[in-house]
Design a binder for these strands. Sequence first.
DNA 1: GAAAGATTGTTGTTGACGACAACAATTGAT
DNA 2: ATCAATTGTTGTCGTCAACAACAATCTTTC
Lengths: 175, 175
Amino acid sequence: MAIKQQTSRKAAGTGAAIRRPQTRAANDRTLGDAGDDIGLDALVGHAGYVVRRFQLWIFQDFVKTLATVDIRPTQYSVMTVIGANPGLSQMAVAKRLGIERARLVHLLDSLEERAFVSRIPSATDRRSHALHLTGRGKTALAQFKRLAAEHERHVADKIGKENREQLLRILACFT
Amino acid sequence: MAIKQQTSRKAAGTGAAIRRPQTRAANDRTLGDAGDDIGLDALVGHAGYVVRRFQLWIFQDFVKTLATVDIRPTQYSVMTVIGANPGLSQMAVAKRLGIERARLVHLLDSLEERAFVSRIPSATDRRSHALHLTGRGKTALAQFKRLAAEHERHVADKIGKENREQLLRILACFT
DNA sequence: GAAAGATTGTTGTTGACGACAACAATTGAT
DNA sequence: ATCAATTGTTGTCGTCAACAACAATCTTTC
């Protein structure tokens, strides 16, 4: 019953010992133990499951690493895109990041409240706003990027430096 | 104005032309960045962003592929774990899948309504339930697995067969 | 054996998030 | 001038993770 220890990073045997399709002889786990040696069996080999777990971990680490500045991943991505492409419209930013323009409204509201970005009325199109970082936003983003780089190092520590780069290469088509 | 050109230039593309890590010469942004080598699209190189986009795509494809049986990824994972390890408690399933036990309650409610799983009172612990698949649940899960395999082929078609396997290998520590 | 503490299932709330629908203002096309 | 499309905005709905609290039930400790 000392199995209370949560999933303690069995990173040693990474790929091994997954091959046991019907080894459910030890089936009468009488519920008292809540054992952690539960075979995922069929779930291993599903990309969606492992990606979900990874995304959860990576977001939590991002939020934790940038907790001091109170910036969440989506906010960071918005500021990054605006910083790299000043003057973009909300529609362009939303399309670029794959988020709804309806959602971007609140995102920008919060960022504008904190004086990180500003919606400047476009001169050519009175419907749209040209998004810019404020001076405060630029210096803030610089700090965010340093923290984000630290978070990225956490990722590298977790899955390995070259594995991280492989991952970025594999999923580059979703950028 | 140059703003509109920037928007129209970048808005459309969702893929293509990512291979320029440090070719940021043509970037006329006035933002003095933090010395970090973040290129034109600073989000390239962030694992969290690309994983989020990928997870979104993969979940949508899963839901679409299993739309005829009305099963979502989380429901599928729950049924898979129960099917592979009959008699687990809710706590054990929740811990194994990394979901809150509070959330699992509603998950199991819906699955029990459809007569896929059943909560059998544990004989040894009157607090907990032993989770089992019903006969209907077993045959249903077999069909779900076939559809999930089809979804997995979609993933392979999207990112490449060997890339998918690499991905599973890299992220195996999150299983 | 009884009190204290921990666990299990449950209910509820909060907030982030994606999807969708509608709307006013504005722009572009016919 | 008229009609369709776009942009920002507001709103709702459903999913999901994270917490907090609770009653019932073990488990531990004295």
